[in-house]
């Protein structure tokens, strides 16, 4: 079947098997390898990408791309890690925060973790005031074996503070 998905602002149209998972569409057809997979059972969050429903005014939300068929993403806007930075190369604050706070080691869970982190900041009315529990709860669908999470929490706080200082650095609100 023909599936067309907009990923990072570019539309990818491919004739695929109906059973094709979104993660495999992103990796094999769009050839964007920054999105990884880790478990097949929706537990680890390695494959998380941000999905934006053009019909909704909610900010783009994280989905586990191993648990969606590619066909289900038709008509949505997907943002992967490759689409986080601005076209001029300026990093998203969440990317800066992960580097500043040593919030990654092997880097395998990082794209999914950053996607969730960015959603946490965007959906929160007052992101710099998020409690430790709110952040921990927010990222509890993402597993990381290297960092022990403490620095990831610091990185999300760093990004929230940075966005407060630099409102223009936040993603363009729709």
């Amino acid at each position: 079947m023909l599936v067309s998905i907009s990923i990072n602002g570019q539309v990818y149209s491919h004739d695929v098997e109906p059973r094709l998972l979104l993660v495999h569409f992103i990796r094999e057809y769009a050839e964007l390898h920054g999105t990884h997979w880790g478990c097949d059972t929706s537990n680890c969050g390695i494959c998380i990408v941000l999905m934006d429903d053009p019909q909704s005014d909610q900010p783009p939300y994280p989905v586990k791309s191993c648990t969606m068929l590619a066909a289900m993403a038709q008509g949505y806007e997907i943002t992967t890690v490759e689409g986080m930075a601005k076209p001029d190369g300026t990093l998203d604050p969440i990317q800066m925060g992960f580097h500043e706070m040593h919030a990654l080691q092997c880097g395998f869970c990082t794209p999914g973790m950053m996607s969730t982190g960015r959603w946490l900041i965007e959906r929160h009315p007052n992101p710099t005031q998020m409690t430790d529990h709110e952040i921990r709860d927010g990222i509890s669908g993402n597993l990381c074996r290297c960092t022990g999470y403490d620095n990831i929490i610091k990185a999300i706080r760093w990004a929230a503070a940075y966005i407060e200082e630099h409102p223009e650095s936040a993603r363009t609100a729709r």
Partner: peptide, 19 residues
């Protein structure tokens, strides 16, 4: 010292086996 290897990982440009 912040890590040199971060630059590729935060951009999704790591090169893992399945890539």
């Amino acid at each position: 010292m912040k890590r040199k290897e971060d630059a590729r990982f935060i951009r999704g440009l790591g090169d893992y086996m399945d890539d």
